[in-house]
């Protein structure tokens, strides 16, 4: 597969992945571009990989985690999936989803990445561990901690 073919098939998926991990459209495009740029520079090696897309996604999430470790990194306000609806019903599910999206911003970068890879990318814990260079048990504990934080945030929202 040529680089151009890969980008036209998967480029937008990378921007979407960038958005789900970062919560910011601009940063999502930057992340996709960083990942593609790095992949392009060693494309011969990337396309020989068992799963080139997994390889490029790995570059992207690790680029994001590196970015968040920098001192200059500041979280931009999360973009809203949908504008707030003045009438809570019938769009209850959207409002709930929006709450969950907002709660995701309270997680650490690694927690959020683990959840995205698990529930958006549907990757198993072993693959996630391999992508992030951590143990599968760390993936499980990170996900469990993140889910507990989200559950707590949701409960407190519903109570208040």
């Amino acid at each position: 597969m040529e680089f151009e073919e890969y980008v036209s098939a998967r480029g937008q998926d990378l921007v979407r992945l960038g958005f789900t991990v970062s919560g910011d459209y601009q940063r999502a495009e930057d992340l996709a571009q960083i990942a593609l740029m790095q992949a392009f520079r060693s494309w011969r090696k990337v396309r020989k990989a068992d799963d080139p897309h997994l390889y490029v996604r790995r570059i992207l999430v690790n680029a994001y985690l590196s970015m968040t470790r920098r001192r200059s990194f500041t979280e931009s306000p999360s973009a809203e999936i949908d504008p707030p609806h003045p009438v809570p019903d019938p769009a209850t599910d959207i409002v709930n989803s929006d709450d969950l999206w907002r709660a995701l911003a309270e997680l650490s970068a690694r927690e959020r990445v683990v959840l995205v890879l698990r529930y958006y990318q549907d990757l198993d814990d072993r693959t996630i561990a391999d992508m992030l260079g951590i143990k599968p048990s760390s993936v499980r504990s990170t996900a469990s901690r993140a889910l507990a934080t989200l559950r707590k945030a949701r409960q407190s929202h519903h109570v208040s």
Partner: peptide, 29 residues
């Protein structure tokens, strides 16, 4: 919660506008 998360992520991903000229930008950079 896990089902809701999947829904949230899918909806968030679907809301991402189409990026233009990713190939050109990546190769140029």
């Amino acid at each position: 919660l896990e089902d809701d998360l999947r829904g949230t992520f899918d909806r968030a991903a679907a809301s991402v506008p189409m990026a233009t000229d990713l190939t050109g930008r990546a190769t140029t950079d």
